[in-house]
Amino acid sequence: MEYTENRNFWLRVMTYVSAFLLVAATIMSFTYPGAERSMGEVQRLFYIHLGSFFGSFLTFSVAVVAGIYYLRTRDNKWDRLEASSVEIGLGLSAVTIVTGAIWARPTWGTYWTWDPRLTTIAIMWLTYAAYLFLRSAIEDPERKRRFAAVYAIIAFSSVILTIVIIRVRPDVIHPTVAGPSTTSADVRGEFNVTPRIRDTVFFNIFTYCVLSAVLTWHRIRIENKSDFIQERKLSILGNM
């Protein structure tokens, strides 16, 4: 499928908007909220950490919906959306893991610990990395799409587990900023959320959600162009 001029125009507009939002969110994270009292400047990593997690959560959720629609309709456009969403989600969750590890070093004294939350996010990341590997390993296109759709739906349970684990396990050291938790604040390295911190968090979440949507759109365009070129190659070979 070739993109129309109108669609290319809107993709370009959204690309500029997301680039502007990313720059604005980064500047806001450095300047708008003050440094946190107990952790110092490193607490600012929380904004990119949470933003990228929500961005990946959005794309993994989209992959589930696309997987369900593919199984219902067998339309390849849903498969392209699903594969693109998973790839972008995997990249953004890598940002979440890396920034979280660096935040943990001065706060917990280690880059990584097998805390239930960290274990579940590692499982989540590996589950979606395996999706891409397994997808590329299956030759038959129809079988590949069907398998990928079922896998994307089942793999989302790892995302739900990652979200829920800090609310149900009492031995978690990961902070729970919003919602109920069974662990005490002094164990978790908790911090008080001031209005400026809250605004910056929400702006970063919004930014990374927009960014994930735009990156997924670009990724879908690659899938579309790749299919289009493949068809043209077959057509040329057929005419030779």
Binding site: T26, M39, I102
Partner: peptide
């Protein structure tokens, strides 16, 4: 307040490098 500026810079540099 602890001096954790280096960690913040490293975290943002790596995070944004991954996005890039």
């Amino acid at each position: 307040m602890p001096d954790t500026l280096d960690y913040m810079i490293t975290g943002y540099a790596l995070g944004l490098a991954l996005v890039a």
